[in-house]
Amino acid sequence: MGKKSRTKGRSEASTPGEVGPRQPCPCGSGRQYKSCHGSKSGPPPVFSARPFAGLDGETDLIALREFVPSASAPLKLKSSDRTVTLCTLLPGAVPALVRDNGHIFLALQVQHGFGDPSRDLGAVLTAALDAEPGSVVGLTDDPGEGPKLQDLVHGGLDVSVHEGFDYWLTDLDDADGSMAALLEQADQAVSPTVRLDGVDAAYWTAMGEREFLRWVRPEDEDQLLDALARLHAAGEDHLVEGGKLIGMFRAHGVLVPVWDLPRGTGADALVAPVAAFAEKLTATLGDARPLETEERSVRSGLASRQVTIR
């Protein structure tokens, strides 16, 4: 009786073709339907599937925004010689700080979100350029139409990964030691992270007893999945002995393949094999042949292990 009732309830709750509340929203935002166009309050006012497209250093910026705990990079403005430093995180997760000398610190990991993070960053940076020295700059409401970050800056990202948040003290007099105390607390949450030399946006990290490589890729998702499926089916996607490709994140319109690595691998041991794999991947991306049966099966498995971050 109970089983029959449950079946009846399901049939009455949905109709063929209807989107379930926990299914991906058809708009392509990557959110669940109940949190997007199925929300009682409606979808976010703005959505950009690939907000940082066209920006030099797009993949590194995504890495710094999503999973690198502590890093910074200088930004070059198109219309000003002001000193601006892009940061993963600032004290209190504030969007921007303007130092007493005018140096602007612009943060990627923030608490607000109005649908297009590049537009949000553009709004914060524009406000910081006009703010008084010593100001904290943020967003409390949708910024509306305005420049995206790629409209305001040029050049790539020269990323520096830090062991902690000591860069917060740049240009700051911490005479009373209050910032040092905050740093000590923040540093405890930092997982060891290294950006690999020779390739863009590949980051080794150790989390507890485990090690991983996360590699933000700029290619079209379907094209990259096809190439990874071909390499996996051929047994050519292993970077080191005992390591394996375990899945991928999807963030800001690109994929981030993730390799699980044997304990003790370290970042240095990955430099040569990752560079070699990059060459194989580039060659495979140019293969336009239809996938074979085994490759299609592998591709389906890889797609099922994707986790959408944003």
Rank of each mutant, 00 (worst) to 15 (best):
R195A: 15
D197E: 15
H162V: 10
V161A: 04
D174L: 10
L231E: 02
E132R: 14
G138P: 12
F165N: 07
Y203A: 07
P218E: 08
R230I: 09
D141A: 14
R195L: 15
Q185K: 15
M179T: 14
Q185R: 13
E221S: 10
G146T: 09
V159W: 09
G134D: 00
L149V: 01
L129F: 05
L228N: 02
D173H: 06
G122F: 05
A128T: 04
A201W: 04
E211N: 00
D187Y: 03
P218S: 07
P143F: 07
V199Q: 10
T170C: 01
W215P: 02
D237P: 00
E219D: 14
G156R: 11
A229E: 04
P218Y: 04
P133H: 07
D226Q: 13
L149C: 03
K148R: 15
D197R: 13
A233L: 01
A128D: 06
A189R: 12
D174W: 04
P143H: 03
H154K: 10
P192I: 00
S118W: 02
Q150C: 11
H232W: 06
H238D: 15
D237F: 01
D130Q: 15
A202V: 09
L139M: 09
A227M: 04
G155F: 05
L225P: 05
A127G: 13
V136P: 01
L152A: 02
A202G: 15
D174E: 08
F212L: 00
G155Y: 08
A202K: 01
L139K: 06
V136K: 13
G156C: 08
G146W: 02
E211F: 01
L196Y: 12
F212G: 00
H154M: 11
P218D: 05
P133R: 06
V159R: 06
L224H: 05
L157K: 10
D222T: 14
D158M: 03
V194H: 11
S118L: 11
H154P: 00
T140I: 13
T126D: 07
L152K: 05
L125S: 14
A233W: 02
P133S: 07
Y203T: 06
H154S: 12
L157G: 12
G156N: 02
F212R: 00
D200Q: 15
D151F: 08
H238S: 14
L129R: 11
G146V: 00
W215D: 01
L125R: 10
G208R: 10
T126Q: 11
L149F: 06
L152I: 15
Q223Y: 04
L183H: 09
A202Y: 10
D176G: 03
